[in-house]
């Protein structure tokens, strides 16, 4: 599924014109990105939380050459799915197992 598919779904389900649906989807993504860029976390009830975590400097290795290299401190985005989200995945995957 891609961005256009989400917009189509909004169009089909809510009768919002396609262009406006695309616009809304893009605005949502932009808002989330901006918030994270400022280091603010994004909490979506029933879905999950996006948080920004600071990583310390650490040593890594070039997996090809085995050479040791320094990995600079950085900020990364992590996502934690909400319990509801995790449970619906569990329910769906257990049935199909």
């Amino acid at each position: 599924m891609r961005k256009a598919d989400i917009a189509s779904l909004i169009h089909d389900r809510h009768g919002i014109p396609k262009r406006e649906a695309v616009n809304v989807v893009e605005l949502i993504l932009e808002e989330i990105k901006e918030s994270l860029a400022q280091g603010d976390e994004v909490k979506i009830a029933g879905f999950g939380n996006f948080t920004v975590r600071s990583k310390r400097e650490r040593k890594g290795r070039n997996p090809k050459t085995g050479e040791e290299i320094g990995i600079t401190p950085r900020r990364v985005v992590t996502f934690r799915a909400s319990p509801v989200f995790k449970q619906s995945v569990l329910d769906a995957t257990e049935v199909s197992r």
């Binding site: 779904l9 809304v24 949502i28 993504l29 979506i44 879905f47 995945v89 769906a92």
Partner: peptide, 24 residues
């Protein structure tokens, strides 16, 4: 609409689909 966006992502994953959003 915001609800639908997140629900659709959740639904896609529960049926084993993946969601790829360029730039995000």
């Amino acid at each position: 609409l915001v609800g639908t966006v997140f629900t659709s992502i959740k639904d896609a994953l529960t049926v084993g689909d993946k969601v790829e959003i360029r730039g995000f």
